[in-house]
Design a protein around this nucleic acid. Structure first.
Lengths: 231, 231
DNA sequence: CCCTCGTCTATTGGATACATTGTTGCGCAC
DNA sequence: GTGCGCAACAATGTATCCAATAGACGAGGG
């Protein structure tokens, strides 16, 4: 914003003072999740600064934030890279999710309105119809994470969101190689999950969700090629 | 380090270039955990900078790191405070631990040597003999966290460590009000846990640990006065 | 021909200086 | 006496400048 001389309307400037670090962190997070940066990609501070029209200082803060979220790996005096996961680490993430997301679901189900559950059902159907891999992972992410938005405390929600973000790239890569199988299990599980939620059957909802994550983890383990590094 | 003119031996200087942010983060984290800062205490950037003989820049990085860990709450253009937990949030943390720590234990038990298990047993006995609250929480923390140091991937270990850190202050406060009860359950559970580990009985070890955390959570809920804010 | 050491440059780390924001306390009006 | 508003201050956010480090490249020797 500083380099551009023709900046007539500061009114439409949503970026207020004191938000540069957070804003850059948000945008870089989105870029990483969108796949614009591959795991292992180098992140240069000055590039980011120029890109966002800021100095390197808020960029460094943003990198620290994303480092804390596990999305970026920073080495002192050397540089920053998009974090990379091994198959073992990714499986560990899924095992954590398997234990933790059912708990988060338990917190949220009592707070869901019937209308909201209808929306979930519609989303599950929409996922079935998704043609493209990018559509699928976007809708699938929305389906699951929207279930977790009702709780009044968001500590667990934040932890789960970070787990999703750290594995997002591998979910995309895995979906790409797996989608040819034309396996309908995912969709069945989604509908079973909505059904259990509608009946407010917490135990069953927990079981279905845990099984859903577990099955994904086992499928993932059958495709280690997703994790082959090509430096 | 820069202001002191009489610095004859640069050999004993462990603080190298590029480590100020991490160093300050580590020291501030220790200060918060030690109880030197109460939850809700204001953290002024300039004070920290002077205290560590650095400028505000690495201090800001440190604050971002600790914010990511949940230990510090930063409000833009306003300031930073030591994070505060409500009873509901603390219970949520314990519920997460209840589900996640047994998994981490499962990862670690097969990697423990018999000698190490002897050390755990000795630690459990030492905890029984601890006189003072500060001793107890230090030894108890070491007892539990040392169990988690063997795993080759440390993703889950980091998450658990953060959960411990975020609740550390309340564990201290709670122990202070609870220690008068003279309840031996904690120690029985510790010894049962070591016993299950020694037999390499993963299922039983998981159950005992989950029960241990669960019981602590329920006790905690009976002492809401620990969370009363006194501003 | 290859290995090693030295230099050099690109990039990051840190400090100082300045702009902006939030807050607090005082004064004035009602 | 109370409530609103303005102003001065204090603390944070940002930019620019300088220092230190690590990787790369090339020259020299084995």
């Amino acid at each position: 914003m500083a380099s551009v001389s023709t900046e007539p309307a500061p009114i439409l400037e949503p970026a207020r003072h004191g938000a540069a670090g957070s804003r850059i962190a948000d945008e870089l997070r989105q870029s990483i999740l969108s796949g614009a940066y591959e795991p292992g990609a180098r992140i240069r501070q000055e590039d980011l600064a120029d890109l966002h029209g800021a100095s390197r200082l808020p960029v460094r803060e943003a990198l620290r934030v994303l480092e804390g979220e596990g999305l970026v790996t920073v080495v002192a005096n050397t540089g920053a890279w998009v974090s990379r996961l091994s198959l073992a680490e990714c499986e560990e993430m899924y095992q954590i999710r398997e234990r933790v997301e059912p708990l988060l679901l338990r917190y949220n189900v009592p707070l869901m309105s019937d209308d909201f559950i209808d929306e979930l059902e519609a989303l599950a159907t929409q996922i079935e119809l998704s043609a493209d891999v990018e559509d699928f992972i976007t809708l699938d992410r929305r389906f699951h994470l929207s279930m977790y938005g009702a709780a009044e405390t968001n500590l667990l929600g934040d932890i789960v969101l970070r787990l999703w973000n750290r594995t997002h790239h591998y979910r995309r890569a895995f979906t790409r190689v797996f989608s040819r199988g034309n396996d309908q299990s995912v969709h069945y599980e989604h509908h079973l999950l909505v059904s259990a939620i509608r009946r407010r059957d917490l135990g069953e909802a927990e079981r279905v969700l845990a099984g859903h994550i577990r099955r994904t983890r086992l499928e993932l383990a059958r495709h280690p090629e997703v994790f082959s590094h090509h430096p």
